[in-house]
Amino acid sequence: MTSETVEIGSVPATGPIRLTAAHYLRCLEGVVRREWLRFLSQRGRFFSALVRPLVWLGIFAAGFRFTLGVSIIPPYETYVPYEVYVVPGLAAMVQMFNAMQSALSMVWDREMGSMRVLLTSPLPRWYLLTAKLLASVVVSVLQVYAFLAIALFWDVEAPWWGYLTVLPALILAGMMLGACGLLLSSTIRQLENFAGVMNFVIFPMFFASSALYPLWRVKESNLWLWYICELNPFTHAVELIRFALYGEVSWSAALVVVGFLIVFMVLAVIGYDPARGLVARRGGSE
């Protein structure tokens, strides 16, 4: 092995090329920058990402607050209006939609072929997927902060430090939901199947969770549904965000979210593995 460090910028004709930490960092930066630029150029996406939770907050919550009394449950120390209860769930919803949007664009990219640009980078595939994941999390976290800012108009105000402590929760929840999206994107064959994702993933995950109603209420009405809610990773993403917004940590939620993050990510990497993955078995279009 030669002693000189081979800079990939000037590819030599022979000898192995070793990738350094600098290569990895530049790649991550480039993938995040691209996601950000795309986000900026798609203003409609940002707009709808904000309008969606605001419809729930401004219309659904206003109507629902009189039919559902929320008792005092942690992390709240007093009776809270329904709007206050529902905001963490809507924040998680913003992240879920962003994750599914990223997954959708990955399926699109794959069908259109531009995914190959990413996958033919010399960096390992698991790293490329992780970079992609982090890039989408950056966008989703910013969307949530924009939503939280507008929620102030509905008098939904967390203590000021809550807006800091919620950040790690949003990153974790965003990564878990993003990894779920990545996994889906590796298994979905075609774009048109994405409507199915709405029906079979987004809606059940959202409604069978603690986003819209506290789970003790669900338990009272239907024990089986309660079990499902408890098993739903989205529930734990919501609770992680809810506690963090008030400066508290729900360790059980954090543990579940991290667990699902690892499982989803490992499966997604396998899905994209050229030797084993579904992408490989599927066969090409000539």
């Binding site: 990939i8 790649c27 480039g30 993938v31 920058r33 691209r34 630029l37 980078s121």
Partner: peptide, 17 residues
């Protein structure tokens, strides 16, 4: 959605330039 140079920068980043 990206400009010519943004596309090239993205590719360069994927190669760690």
């Amino acid at each position: 959605d990206l400009s010519v140079e943004q596309n090239l920068r993205y590719h360069a980043a994927l190669h760690g330039l």
